[in-house]
C-alpha cells in the first residue's frame, strides 16, 4: 500500500528572502494505492507528476504531510534508509539514464551489485530480465548502439531485475513511437500481473485506453478526482479477480476512504 496524506511540496524560487514557500509543486495531495494495482498518473506538463514520483522514490522530501510505502514512513526516514528503500523500488525514466560506457549487462546488473547480490544470482537474474525484454543477444552491446525502444527496454530490465514491489515510471514512452509504446506498456502490464504495483506517469492518451487501471490526475499540483469509469471498472474487475482480491482500490481524500 502506498499512501500520501495531505502532502505538500514547495520549492523556493530563491528571491523571496528565504521564505522558501513561493512555488507549490504539490498541494494537499492525499490518496492511497493498494498493493498490486496499476496506476496512471496524468496531468499536463508542470502539473506535479514528476514531483510526486520523486517524493514516492524518496528523492525529494515533502514540505508537509506524510508518505507511506508499506510500513516505511518515507517522510521521516533518514537519507541512508531512504536509499535502502529506493533500492527495492524499480524506477524507469523518460530518458532511460543508462550508463553509456557500460554494456547492457553491466547496466542491468547495477541494482543487484548495489544490493550486494552474489555473482551467480546476478548472472541468473540479469539473464532472465534481458530475456524478458527480448534483449538477451544484446547483453554485450553498449547502449548507444541500441534503438530508442531497446534502450527503454534495457531501462525496464534494470528496473525490474531486483524484483521490486513497486515500479515507478516517468513518461517511459515519451520518446517512442506508438507501436513501441504499446510494447513497453505490455511489459508493464506483465509485471503488474505478477503482483508489482505500477505507477506510470504519462500524458499519452493512447496508453490510457487499456483496461484495469486506476488514474490519478494532477492539475497545478492538486489531485483531481480519479476517473469514475476506471474506478467503477476497477471495482468490478477486482472483486472478480482472485489475484487482486478486494484490496485493489484507489482512494482519494483521506487515506482510509475508498472512492470506488
Amino acid at each position: 500500500m502506498i499512501t500520501f496524506d495531505r502532502v505538500e511540496k514547495f520549492y523556493s524560487s530563491g528571491n523571496t528572502g528565504g521564505s522558501g514557500r513561493d512555488s507549490a509543486a504539490l498541494s494537499d495531495v492525499t490518496f492511497a494505492l493498494p498493493a498490486g494495482s496499476f496506476n496512471f498518473l496524468t496531468g499536463h506538463s508542470g502539473a506535479g507528476k514528476s514531483t510526486l514520483l520523486k517524493l514516492l522514490a524518496g528523492l525529494e522530501r515533502p514540505t508537509a504531510g506524510e508518505i507511506y510505502f508499506g510500513e516505511h514512513a518515507l517522510h521521516a526516514l533518514p537519507d541512508n534508509k531512504l536509499d535502502a528503500v529506493r533500492s527495492r523500488m524499480g524506477i524507469v525514466f523518460q530518458e532511460n539514464q543508462l550508463l553509456a560506457d557500460r554494456s547492457v549487462f553491466d547496466n542491468v546488473a547495477l541494482p543487484l551489485i548495489i544490493s550486494r547480490m552474489k555473482r551467480a544470482e546476478i548472472v541468473a537474474r540479469v539473464g532472465a530480465a534481458l530475456e524478458r525484454v527480448s534483449l538477451s543477444q544484446k547483453a554485450d552491446e553498449l547502449p548507444q548502439t541500441l534503438s530508442g525502444g531497446e534502450q527503454q527496454r534495457v531501462g525496464i530490465a534494470r528496473a525490474v531485475v531486483n524484483r521490486p514491489r513497486v515500479l515507478l515510471a516517468d513518461e517511459p514512452t515519451g520518446n517512442l513511437d506508438p507501436e513501441m509504446s504499446r510494447e513497453i506498456l505490455k511489459l508493464f502490464r506483465h509485471f503488474n500481473t505478477a503482483g508489482v504495483t505500477v505507477i506510470l506517469a504519462t500524458h499519452d492518451l493512447e496508453l490510457l485506453k487499456i483496461r484495469h487501471h486506476n488514474r490519478l490526475t494532477l492539475k497545478n499540483g492538486r489531485l483531481l478526482a480519479a476517473s469514475a469509469m476506471d474506478l467503477a471498472r476497477e471495482s468490478t474487475q477486482h472483486k472478480q479477480s482472485p489475484q487482486y482480491g478486494n484490496s485493489n482500490q484507489v482512494s482519494r481524500g483521506r487515506p482510509a476512504r475508498d472512492l470506488a
Partner: peptide, 25 residues
C-alpha cells in the same frame, strides 16, 4: 514474487567470464 522471465532462451553472454570479485561493491 515470481516475474515469469525465467523460462527458456540463452542466458546473457557476458556473465560467464567475470570473476565474483567484480560484482562486489
Amino acid at each position: 514474487m515470481r516475474y515469469g522471465f525465467g523460462g527458456g532462451g540463452k542466458p546473457a553472454k557476458p556473465s560467464s567470464g567475470r570473476h565474483a570479485f567484480w560484482f562486489t561493491h
